[in-house]
């Protein structure tokens, strides 16, 4: 029991060597190509990422009718934004839903069983989202968890926790910060973080 959590000193070097060995063997055996892994990573740098979600939220802030359509039918509303990259209903975004924070309501998205996350609009989940301690605690004591993120949510505000356990990939439309009147959509998008779109933060103030 005592060394149940012991790791070797070269923990990361070993994993790095092992994954490189695996990639090399898979290339040699014709399973993947020497470009496959980089191809995947490039998609997440250029096409699927939180830069899309930030633009969608900014649009919702400036266009209340769009926001309403986003809540009612997220894929259809997102499809209206034709200048987003291809694949907005692609892998892990086939069935997305958006929930909006507002007066008296704060939303928090979690996945207690694994790490379900809306890839097209948010990219890949940050470490905190995948960590079992967050996933365990956020279900039962969301306010205590949010406080550790630096966010205080009063007891008078209902906390709605969305556990992503089937086909839906959820994201949050945070509230538009005060003092942002007159800002462009591009400027507004810069205030929207992945954490705000999962509900562990609010949008940055201007």
């Amino acid at each position: 029991m005592t060394d149940r959590f012991h790791h070797p000193d070269d923990r990361e070097a070993r994993s790095a060597a092992r994954v490189r060995a695996l990639e090399a063997l898979l290339i040699e055996k014709g399973v993947i190509t020497s470009k496959t892994v980089d191809t995947v990573l490039t998609v997440f740098e250029t096409k699927m990422g939180p830069f899309n979600g930030a633009r969608i939220v900014a649009r919702a802030w400036v266009d209340p009718a769009f926001k309403q359509r986003l809540i009612e039918d997220a894929p259809a509303a997102i499809a209206e934004m034709t200048d987003l990259p291809e694949g907005m209903a692609g892998a892990e975004g086939e069935h997305m839903r958006a929930v909006a924070n507002g007066e008296g309501v704060h939303n928090l998205v979690i996945c207690t069983l694994c790490s379900c996350y809306p890839w097209p609009v948010l990219g890949l989940p940050p470490y905190w989202y995948k960590d079992p301690t967050f996933r365990s605690r956020a279900a039962r004591e969301p306010r205590a968890v949010l406080k550790e993120f630096g966010l205080t949510v009063p007891e008078s505000t209902e906390v709605k926790v969305w556990d992503s356990s089937a086909q839906i990939r959820w994201f949050v439309i945070p509230e538009r910060p005060a003092g942002t009147e007159g800002m462009s959509e591009e400027q507004l998008a810069a205030l929207v973080t992945p954490e705000a779109m999962m509900g562990v933060a609010v949008a940055a103030s201007a």
């Binding site: 994954v19 990219g123 940050p126 470490y127 960590d131 301690t133 967050f134 605690r137």
Partner: peptide, 18 residues
């Protein structure tokens, strides 16, 4: 909880994801 916001905390992790 861990408030680490990076997706990959070690470079090698990108490869297994791919």
């Amino acid at each position: 909880i861990t408030v680490e916001t990076r997706v990959f905390v070690e470079e090698w992790e990108t490869r297994i994801f791919g």
